Computed example of a mutant assay.
Amino acid sequence: MTRIRCTVLIALLVTSLGAAPAQADPLTDFYSAPVPDIATRADGEVVRSIRVGPPLGDGLGLDIDRILYRTTNTQGHPTAVSGYTMTPTAPWPGPGPRPVIAYAPGTSGMADRCAGSAVLGTVGSSPAVLPLLLAGYAVAATDYVGLGTPGGHTYLERVDAAHALLDVARVGAADSGAPVVLFGYSEGGHAAGAAAELASSYAPELDVRGSYVGAPPADPTLNIDNLDNTPLAPALLYAVGGLINAHPEHAEQLRSQLNSNGQALLDQSQNWCSTDIAANRLLRSTDLTSDGRPLTTRLAQEPAASLMRANTVGYGIPSAPVLLSQSVSDDTVPIQQSRTLRDRWTAAGFTDLTYIEYPIPRVPVPGVNHAPGGLIAYGDVMPWIAGLLAR
């Protein structure tokens, strides 16, 4: 019965929310209108919200709001970030305040129209949180810096992702003192891992019980060669674009790593969603770099090398339990990512780590081996979260 209900909810969210285009005038203003007093707001403070009314929220037993909230970016500047909250209308049956799942979505692209709050229900957004909602938890999700809002998306920027996730957790918990669990897969796994490391210093007032970190591209340098010369290679353009968006002072040096064709594609990729045909083409980085060397070689040079190391998760220590899991057959984020992250954390003395590898058979179609690891993980993640909240 629960499986049937979940399927129906997914269909309703995808159909109905997807039918409300992000480009409608009220939503354009919501995302793009300036927030003149952003500097005076506190991190995690909501500066703008729009309630998603019937038939969605009321009809599904959820209170749903698109939100704009403040965070502090990697440059130390106050920044408005979009996201959404979903809260079941049924009373929380457990003791204490309703727990909050701070949700970091997987890669959806670089264009504002890809943001989870803009379409709420596309792959990587609402369907992934439905098991959490069915368990009675509130969900507070981030779109990440620059995805939905003005400015470029700072893809895989460690500090930006961690701060955006912790600040949306602040939105969800408000002043209730609710327990928080950080939750992310793929790009979201990178964000959840980064937030796990920074939670005690950036948001010490939050009651973070733990973090689910699924298939994280934790070390950007380990996620280049496996994508190169495949239909997944456009994600490499996202990575370069993310560095430029987060560090515009290095834009000229980073762009110079690419030839004119590579720079043109880099600019085009800023307007791609992962579901676009253009974002699923086979690319060889040797055709795009300025000297014909692979991108992995070019990004090993400065300033990219230092920037990518700074974006690596695993050099800090989480302050709460972590469940880290991945499929061994993942062809988008190689299993070596999780193994390396596990080894770095344990070498640093972190012991409250649950590590799981799923021996899912590999399918000979590029890209389809990534999502199954996230789906099968719910069987372990849900009871693990329940155990954290019972402490």
Rank of each mutant, 00 (worst) to 15 (best):
R5H: 13
T7D: 13
L9P: 07
I10G: 04
A11T: 10
T15F: 08
A33L: 13
T40V: 08
G44W: 05
G59F: 07
G59N: 04
L62Q: 00
I67G: 05
Y69I: 04
R70C: 03
A80K: 07
V81T: 04
W92A: 06
G94M: 06
A102L: 02
S108W: 05
S108C: 05
R113G: 09
S117W: 02
V119G: 05
S125Q: 10
L133V: 04
G136Q: 01
T142G: 06
P150T: 11
Y155H: 14
E157P: 03
E157D: 15
R158W: 03
R158K: 14
D160S: 13
A169S: 06
A178F: 05
V181R: 03
F183D: 12
Y185R: 09
E187I: 08
G188F: 10
H190R: 06
G193C: 00
S200I: 00
S200D: 15
S211N: 00
Y212Q: 08
L222D: 13
N223G: 00
N223C: 13
L227N: 07
L232N: 11
A233N: 10
A233S: 14
V240M: 15
G242P: 00
A246E: 05
L265M: 14
Q268T: 11
Q270S: 14
N271C: 07
T286Y: 10
T289L: 04
R293E: 13
E302A: 14
P303Q: 08
L307T: 04
A310V: 06
D330G: 01
D331N: 01
A348H: 15
E357K: 14
P361H: 10
P366R: 12
G373N: 09
G379I: 07
R391T: 14
